[in-house]
Design a protein around this nucleic acid. Structure first.
Length: 272
DNA sequence: AATCGCGCCTGACGGC
DNA sequence: TGCCGTCAGGCGCGAT
């Protein structure tokens, strides 16, 4: 499941192959992703030079003079740099063919991803406009999170997964950060102390930074631009480890569902 | 304004 | 073996 570290890993992987290259063709094999891929994408993109490859939240932004392609990897998406002559496989929905020998290939078995186009400032696009600060940005600090959380009755886990509060924290890293901070995931966001938000912000930054260093977490579909997996799955303390011993205290890791999503936690270490 | 639940989609898995 | 139901989950959206 691509979360921020996986998208950032992808961005870093594709950037050297894409930036400064001209788009020579766009091949769409499956248009029906979360939203349909614009029918005129090929006309818009062909001939354009990709001037930058950026990330905002879990969105990738391929910017040209004419506009920006917005890519979301959804649940199962990956972007690979392939030889432009290599045969597409099942679920390889789009090739963005480049002026080099390469093509950027979007694979997305579950098709929860998206490939959209925006003219002008991409940050003004409806999908990006309301998104909260980047978690690795300095403006994302304990004071911000504390202030935003006052009066909120949702669980602290759902609170930090709200992209309007902070960008890019998904289900895996929310569980991991709450474990590192020793916070009970079901506690109401508005009832978490300032001191605990200091710990939580530190934990979020730490786990995301570390996951990027490991090239992200590959559980099933996610791969790097070269098709290789990320290795952070080995570093996960609680996610997916129901009934395994807590790495801190040995108590069995628990699983519960919050907002229709699995939360993994240690009831002893995260009593607070 | 905040919160809740739905639905998009495929592949893996368990039960029979 | 094979079929079928269930689950996984990011996240926008509509309803409350």
């Amino acid at each position: 499941m691509p979360e921020l570290p996986e998208v950032e890993t992808t961005r870093r992987g594709i950037e050297p192959h894409v930036k400064g290259k001209r788009v020579t063709d766009v091949i769409v094999r499956q248009r029906q992703l979360r939203w349909p891929i614009p029918k005129n994408l090929k006309r818009l993109l062909v001939g354009q030079v990709v001037s930058s490859v950026e990330r905002r939240a879990k969105y990738l932004l391929l910017t040209t003079k004419a506009g920006t392609a917005i890519v979301h990897l959804g649940m199962s998406g990956s972007l690979r740099v392939v030889n432009k002559k290599s045969m597409p496989e099942l679920h390889d929905h789009v090739d963005i063919v480049l002026s080099s020998a390469k093509a950027l290939r979007l694979r997305d078995p579950r098709r929860f991803g998206a490939l959209l186009w925006v003219k002008g400032d991409p940050m003004q696009h409806a999908l990006l406009k309301g998104i909260g600060p980047e978690p690795l940005d300095d403006v994302f600090d304990a004071e911000y999170l504390y202030r935003k959380s006052r009066g909120r009755r949702v669980s602290v886990k759902q609170f930090i997964m709200n992209s309007h509060i902070v960008a890019g924290v998904g289900n895996i890293y929310a569980s991991e950060a709450l474990f590192l901070a020793g916070i009970n995931p079901v506690r109401q966001a508005g009832r978490v102390s300032r001191a605990r938000y200091v710990k939580l912000v530190g934990a979020i930054k730490h786990v995301l930074t570390k996951a990027i260093k490991f090239g992200g977490t590959t559980l099933r579909d996610f791969t790097h631009e070269d098709g290789k997996p990320g290795y952070f799955a080995n570093e996960l303390n609680v996610y997916g480890r129901q009934a395994e011993p807590c790495p801190q205290c040995g108590t069995a890791i628990k699983l519960r569902v919050q907002g229709q999503r699995a939360t993994y936690y240690c009831a002893l270490c995260q009593a607070g």
